[in-house]
Design a protein around this nucleic acid. Structure first.
Lengths: 337, 337
DNA sequence: GGCGTTCAAGTAATCGATTACTTGGATGGC
DNA sequence: GCCATCCAAGTAATCGATTACTTGAACGCC
């Protein structure tokens, strides 16, 4: 393999000069620069990253730790992060935690061992409690999940507001008994629950909530049980895309008519939400923007470690579809059918 | 930071012994091993990966290069690859090419610079032509895309057979004019086209095919145009999940009844295919298994560079749903409605 | 008992860059 | 004209491991 001393020899300069040229250091003469670049091109020289990283103590690598890349939200986030990283000539290392604290810990250890330049993390609920960015040996940006009092760079949705808007929309459609299925073990689930509760209270309605594991299969089972109960609620809301999917599957399996018998709505706009009849009302998250902002926030933090902490809060967009259509006369379900 | 000499000092042994213990080398005495491990634990020592990689010339990192992680097929593959890598204590570096040859080239260059242990690649059509694994400075496994005559490790679906099965199923449902929407610029699209053509020929039917870009939006537009034509085909088949999505959207927008007016079927089982009424018939790919096999094949190749090339061909599973229901009397569409 | 073999353990070279420090020529102020 | 300053460019130390090579003790065999 050709290495820096070969380039130096061919260009008739010292290895230091080659290194300086390649690093874009300003104090290097025009003729030397040209000769180095010529030699680099002629030899097809590519610096050895391991050597560079050992000496310079920087890796130009960012880590992304999410619960599960198969969750379309994280898929899109990861794509955005990769785009930014690629653009800035940085590498991306990916890890899945499955919400398992042990695995999360081990992913963070991996990032430390890799000496990454920074990490974007969707923390588990447990880790978020008492979270301090200073406990970590690398710059860290939280994504998707963050408590109001967490002192750390973060990019999140305005979950409370989004849930409030969604719930209010359904209430204004004439629904009264509105059930909220939320991810019990997730920070976003809790915040969205809060928005839901606030909206219900504002209209003098009593909340009914059920916590579920944030996986489609589990929420489907839970929804099946709920739908088998004697009296159906007017509407069911889901606090995440996966839960909404499970809910929708359960309704379809049970043969319930939406929105005739029960209205539904939830979070995360996905291909199927507009495909399934009569379309599912959702809060669409700006997922790509969330990932991009997180990556850019991280890069700023890396280049400027002492800047004050920044939190980017993005707004969801209510996408109204048939599944939450108003009941006739806005008086309640009795009028329906 | 604590480093190997600190451990050696504390354990009262040489750095070589520490290195040997940590590498699991057999020829090291029991008491030394114990003292080293104690010192490692006491100091919380973690080896510096950059230094290790520089000296040992191995990175224990595998690269995954796909068209777009947002394609659910690749999402699932990447998750499987990550699982295997994590299990074997290897890192995963991820790249998206967007089917752009220049970006693909640059991803491969990145992998070379990283000196990865191996790469899993979903190659563009252009790269696949005349592909030789020996042109690359790292072990390489192709995934999803591979020609019959390509000499390289690969994990693929039996595309021809799968398309034949799917097409035959629709033919046996009584459909005659069956249109095939295929990804024109992809190897899988072409192979599936081949299976379709074979099945049509076997039943004395003439094929009708339209090539589209393998993106949901584009195939939706194409489908819209096709559906606006005076005479509707009996059925439309899609050669990939994204194309099937676009097709389904177009049908819904146009208000066409499935399978009453036209039957549909395609590739890739996704959440929405069983959610949308009356369910979409598909060839389900064993995506997780494809990713896992690719990762394991790569690890074998890494540990045994001279083994003969291996190709793993997995079978798709026909999942029959309402969208391809047989026409009454199996005589053709005239009987319908 | 002498000698060859084996093997545990240590010493020091090595991986290939970056960068602290040194050198020396040019420049400018007085 | 002398000296201080500056800066381009070179020399060599350095990053922190792995590993080739060396050493010497232990063992067995004749």
């Amino acid at each position: 393999m050709t290495q820096i001393r070969d380039v130096a020899a061919r260009a008739g300069v010292s290895v230091a000069s080659v290194s300086r040229v390649l690093a874009g250091h300003p104090s290097v003469g025009e003729d030397i620069r040209r000769r180095v670049l010529d030699a680099v091109k002629a030899l097809g020289y590519r610096p050895d990253l391991a050597a560079r990283r050992l000496r310079s103590r920087r890796t130009d690598t960012i880590g992304l730790i999410v619960a599960d890349i198969r969750n379309p939200f994280f898929t899109e986030v990861s794509r955005a992060v990769e785009d930014v990283a690629y653009q800035r000539r940085m590498r991306l290392i990916l890890c899945n935690t499955d919400e398992d604290p042990a695995r999360e810990e081990s992913c963070l250890a991996l990032m430390r061992d890799e000496n990454v330049s920074g990490v974007i993390l969707a923390p588990s609920l447990r880790r978020l409690a008492g979270f301090r960015a200073t406990d970590y040996p690398f710059p860290l940006v939280l994504v998707d999940r963050c408590d109001p009092d967490t002192v750390a760079d973060a990019v999140v949705l305005d979950n409370i507001e989004a849930a409030r808007v969604l719930t209010t929309h359904v209430i204004e459609g004439g629904r009264r008994r509105i059930l909220f299925l939320h991810g019990a073990s997730s920070a976003t689930g809790r915040q969205r629950l809060e928005g839901y509760t606030a909206a219900m209270a504002a209209h003098g309605l009593s909340p009914e909530t059920v916590g579920v594991a944030p996986v489609a299969d589990r929420s489907r089972e839970v929804a099946q049980v709920l739908l088998a109960r004697p009296s159906l609620p007017d509407a069911v809301l889901a606090s995440s895309g996966l839960i909404l999917l499970g809910l929708t599957q359960a309704l379809r399996d049970a043969g319930r008519r939406v929105p005739g018998e029960v209205a539904i709505a939830g979070f995360d706009d996905q291909p199927w939400t507009r495909l399934v009849e009569p379309g599912v009302t959702v809060i669409a998250q700006p997922t790509y923007a969330i990932g991009r902002e997180a990556a850019e926030l991280l890069l700023h933090r890396i280049s400027d470690p002492d800047k004050p902490v920044r939190r980017v809060v993005l707004r969801g967009e209510l996408v109204v579809r048939g599944s939450s259509a108003a009941v006739a006369g806005m008086l309640g379900r009795a009028d329906q059918r």
